[in-house]
Nucleic acid binder design. Structure first.
Length: 281
DNA sequence: ATGGCAGAAGCATTCTGA
């Protein structure tokens, strides 16, 4: 079972590239971030035409997440608990669509687009810190359910110095500060493992390259897109890769897709739903 | 310290991203 994640930086601009990639790679699940489109304008039919189910949670211009799946997506959660049922949010608050979750083949998929945070002394950084605290709470609840869980997306955090092309230049600043790393580590706890680091311990593997300064050509990148697995899925993990070649496309996203392969031939999932629906209050 | 590049909104230019 192939499960992938891709920050596409506008699904409408990247639609043909994403469709081509789905047809070539045939993943069972692809999670998108930064779709940058209102739900009423999401191009879901293009995905249905090639055999994928689509669930999306977006807004005009900014943010937005989606789950694309060959198999049925059940028990969908839009946003954090209660978020969907809040009254219409004012313009100033600029309500941000950054998390969507669903159950696919017995696996809980949690797709996140963590705020960037701009700079450490900004109001946006406070928002990022608060958002990570909400994610922590969400994941604590999730782990109590015992479901096999795959947490993936654009985290906008390089957890380790070897996730940055020039750690001496960036460690301590936005996406690599001690407070962000601490908060993400706490949210992950001992509950989740970074699938990529199961196989690859070295530096030099990036998922994002800035559009500016010839960053891709110079291979100046960061690894800020991650796929985490709950411990009860680790024995099924066969590979975890970054699809770097997609960054070479014409008019590419600034992120490359990332993808894992889970094999259930030997270890079948056994999980009983306890119907304790703490997420839909 | 600032800008580089790209996308959306919307039609000139600003805002946002990372």
């Amino acid at each position: 079972m192939l499960i992938a994640s891709w920050n596409v930086n506008s699904i409408r601009s990247r639609l043909s590239q994403v469709i081509k990639w789905l047809e070539d790679e045939q993943p069972e699940v692809l999670c998108l971030q930064e779709t940058k489109v209102s739900d009423k304008d999401f191009p879901y039919k293009t995905f249905e035409n090639i055999g994928y189910d689509v669930k999306f949670y977006g807004q005009k211009s900014y943010n937005g997440v989606a789950i694309i799946s060959k198999d049925n997506i059940a028990d969908i959660r839009y946003g954090f608990p209660g978020e969907l049922n809040q009254l219409e949010i004012s313009e100033e608050l600029h309500f941000q669509k950054r998390i969507i979750s669903g159950l696919i083949n017995g696996i809980r998929i949690i797709n996140v687009y963590v705020p960037n945070g701009s700079s450490l002394n900004s109001e946006k950084f406070n928002y990022k810190v608060n958002w990570l605290a909400m994610l922590n709470e969400y994941l604590v609840k999730q782990s109590k359910r015992g479901e096999p869980t795959c947490l993936l997306g654009d985290f906008n955090i390089a957890l380790d110095d070897n996730d940055i092309y020039a750690p001496d230049k960036f460690t301590g600043s936005i996406m690599a500060s001690e407070i962000e790393r601490k908060m993400l580590r706490e949210a992950l706890g001992s509950r989740f493992k970074d699938s990529f680091r199961v196989f690859e311990k070295c530096s030099g593997h990036w998922s994002w390259w800035d559009y500016r300064n010839n960053s891709f050509e110079l291979n100046k990148g960061w690894r800020i897109d991650h796929i985490y697995l709950s411990n009860n899925l680790l024995s099924n993990l066969k590979s975890s890769v970054i699809e770097r070649s997609q960054r070479e496309n014409n008019q590419p996203s600034d992120h490359a897709p990332i993808m894992i392969n889970l094999d259930f031939q030997e270890n079948l999932i056994e999980f009983e739903d306890d119907d304790d629906d703490i997420f839909n209050l």
